[in-house]
Simulated scan of single mutants.
Amino acid sequence: MALVPAALLTLSLSGCGTESILNDDTRVGSKSDQPGTSYSPHDGEFNGLDITVIDALFRDLGYDSPRPIPVQSKNRTRDLHDGDIHLVAATFSITPKRMQTEAKGGEGLDFVGPYASTQQGVLVADGDTGIQELSDLDGKQVCVWKGTTSDTELSGKAYENIRLRRETDARTCVQALLDGHVSAVSTDQLILYGFMEHYRGRLKVVPEIKFGEPNDYGIAMVKGHREDCEKLRDALKHYVSGPDWDRDVENNLPQLPKSERDEAHPTEDEISSLSCVDEPKNMPTG
């Protein structure tokens, strides 16, 4: 029996080869602690918009639903490059740095998306009437979790009067809010509306507070699987052009206002612009 050359074996194991990652055994990294977007209420069981979307795309391509593997925000890129997972569907924002090749200082990822877009928002206790606009957070402690665009956004000079508390995951931040240890939690609005539904009557999204550039959620993979990427891209275009996307968002995020749902809906042109490319089109590269 012929031996596989070591260089080819290494290439295959690194996830950078051309072998398809789309099959009935695909492993997808997803969050386990974000109700409405990606949540695991029981061991091995997942639900939420991220899960619904990727299941729909795999059905369209004729494959079984991929197997969800829990990931943390800060580990998503590393887990992909290590080969622990094939794809990430975990409210993962498409950014120029993440899309660019490693040779250019990027994270070396291809994205399929956006499958939804959202700005930053704020979650507070349901009875809190003192936080109605962004300036009301000055001097208050706001919880974010590491590895998110929210952490990056609120670390900027424009928000230097906000006292940030950084945790490793969403669950810890939300529990700190429920326990009264922080005044608010900040991250993407879509995620916050999922927590609002999960803790109905205890937590609420402040509808007047939206800030930052829109975050475009994408399904990520390491570069080197462009054909698979394009197949998923075409399936996503088909999905968002019909009635299923709107129904699925409403079912997973029932507290999300229709106006926000309409803003979150991607167009086929947006998907073409941001999917399966090394340099994002129509986005700042700084």
Rank of each mutant, 00 (worst) to 15 (best):
A220Y: 15
S155H: 06
K140P: 12
D179H: 01
R27F: 05
L80M: 09
E263H: 12
A170R: 03
G105L: 00
E160M: 02
Y193L: 05
K31C: 07
R200D: 14
D262S: 10
E227S: 03
D50Y: 09
D246R: 00
I94K: 08
N282H: 13
D246V: 02
E230K: 07
V53H: 07
G130N: 08
K258H: 10
G15S: 01
S241V: 03
D246H: 01
E270A: 06
T172I: 14
E102I: 08
R261W: 06
C229P: 13
Q132F: 02
V28Y: 07
H238K: 10
P35L: 03
L123M: 08
D246L: 03
K258D: 09
R78M: 15
I162A: 01
V53K: 05
S275K: 02
M221D: 02
R226H: 12
L109F: 09
H238A: 08
N252L: 00
F111T: 11
R78Y: 15
E270N: 01
H198D: 12
W145S: 10
S14F: 06
E208W: 01
F46N: 02
L8W: 15
C143H: 06
T91S: 14
K140M: 13
H86Q: 07
Q72I: 10
G224Q: 11
Q189K: 05
S272P: 02
G212I: 07
G147R: 00
G156F: 05
Q120I: 09
F195K: 03
A6Y: 15
T91I: 13
K204R: 08
G83I: 00
S30Y: 06
L109E: 07
G139S: 11
D84H: 04
T267W: 11
R226L: 14
R163W: 10
L203R: 02
V277M: 06
F58W: 08
Y39R: 03
S20P: 10
A235I: 10
P254R: 00
P96D: 01
S40H: 12
W245S: 01
K223C: 04
L80K: 04
I191V: 12
D216C: 03
S14Q: 08
A176I: 03
K231E: 15
D246A: 02
D234I: 13
G242L: 09
S273P: 00
R202G: 05
T149D: 13
G17T: 10
P5V: 11
A103V: 07
T129K: 03
M1F: 15
L11K: 08
E279R: 09
K258S: 05
H42F: 14
T187P: 08
T267F: 12
I54M: 09
L11I: 08
G147I: 02
A184P: 15
Y199N: 04
Q175T: 06
K146R: 14
G156S: 10
C276K: 06
T152M: 10
N252I: 00
R165N: 14
T148F: 07
G113L: 12
T18R: 06
E19C: 01
R76Y: 09
N47P: 02
C276I: 10
A125T: 03
V112W: 10
V112R: 00
V71W: 07
L274W: 12
D43T: 12
Q120Y: 15
L61Y: 14
F111M: 13
D110S: 15
P280W: 14
T129W: 10
G113K: 14
P70T: 09
D136M: 04
K223L: 05
L123F: 12
G108M: 01
R247P: 04
G113Q: 12
